[in-house]
Deep mutational scan, measured.
Amino acid sequence: EWCEALHSFTAETSDDLSFKRGDRIQILERLDSDWCRGRLQDREGIFPAVFVRPCP
C-alpha cells in the first residue's frame, strides 16, 4: 500500500520517518488510527497518518 505526503514531517525521535510534501511512502503497517509505519527509499519509521493520503 502506498501513500503520498500532504505535508512535510520532520522526525522528532530516531523511530520517526522524515519526509517531504509529495513523497510517495510505502505503508508497512497501520499501528493505530493516528500512526503508520512506512518505508521511504532505504529508511523505515513511523509517521502521523494525517500527514498522508492514499495513492490512487
Rank of each mutant, 00 (worst) to 15 (best):
L6V: 08
R30T: 08
D23F: 00
S14K: 14
C36N: 05
D23A: 04
C55I: 10
G22T: 00
F19W: 01
S14L: 10
L31K: 12
P48W: 00
A5E: 03
C55Y: 10
W2L: 04
R37I: 11
T10S: 12
F9H: 13
G38V: 00
E44L: 05
K20D: 07
D42M: 03
S33C: 10
K20P: 01
K20S: 13
G22P: 02
V50E: 15
C55A: 14
G22F: 02
P48F: 08
R24T: 09
W2A: 10
P48V: 05
T10C: 11
T13H: 14
D42Y: 04
G38S: 00
D42V: 04
E29D: 10
L31G: 06
L40Y: 06
H7M: 13
I25A: 00
S18Q: 07
I46D: 09
S18D: 10
S8P: 11
F19Y: 02
P54K: 12
W2T: 05
F19T: 02
C3H: 12
S33H: 14
F19P: 03
G22N: 00
A5P: 01
C55D: 11
S18M: 04
G38P: 00
W35N: 05
D23Q: 09
S14T: 13
S18H: 06
L40M: 05
Q26E: 14
I27F: 03
F47P: 02
F51T: 07
F19N: 01
I27Q: 00
F9E: 03
L17D: 02
A49Y: 07
D42N: 11
T13L: 06
L31N: 06
Q26Y: 06
D15P: 03
L6N: 07
K20G: 08
V52D: 04
V52I: 08
D16R: 15
W35K: 11
S8K: 07
S8Y: 04
A11R: 06
R30L: 06
T13N: 14
R30V: 11
E12T: 14
C3M: 07
I25K: 01
F47A: 00
W35R: 15
P54Y: 04
D15G: 11
S33W: 10
R24E: 06
G22D: 02
G45C: 02
A11N: 04
W2G: 03
L28D: 01
D34I: 09
A49N: 11
P54G: 08
P48C: 01
E29T: 04
F9G: 02
L17G: 01
S8I: 01
A49W: 12
A49Q: 09
T10D: 15
L31M: 12
S8D: 15
C55E: 12
S8N: 15
L40P: 00
D42I: 00
T13E: 09
C55M: 14
E4W: 03
V50P: 05
D15T: 11
V52H: 01
R24I: 11
R30M: 06
A11T: 06
E29K: 07
L40N: 13
I27W: 03
A49H: 06
D16S: 15
F51H: 12
A49L: 11
P56M: 14
W35L: 13
C3V: 13
L6Q: 12
K20I: 08
D42A: 08
S18F: 05
S8R: 04
H7I: 14
L40R: 07
D23M: 03
V50T: 14
W35P: 00
R53C: 08
D16K: 15
R53K: 14
F9I: 06
R37T: 02
R30Q: 15
R30I: 06
R39K: 14
S18N: 05
G38M: 04
E12C: 12
D32Y: 02
F47D: 03
R39D: 02
R39M: 10
R53Y: 04
Q41L: 12
E29Q: 11
S14P: 14
V52A: 07
V52E: 03
T10H: 12
R43Q: 12
E1Q: 09
D42K: 11
R43Y: 09
D32K: 08
F19V: 03
L40H: 11
A11Q: 06
V52M: 07
F47Y: 00
F9P: 02
P54N: 12
E4R: 04
T13M: 10
S33F: 10
A11L: 01
P54W: 05
P56T: 09
E4F: 08
D34Q: 15
L28S: 06
D42R: 09
I25P: 02
E4H: 08
S18I: 07
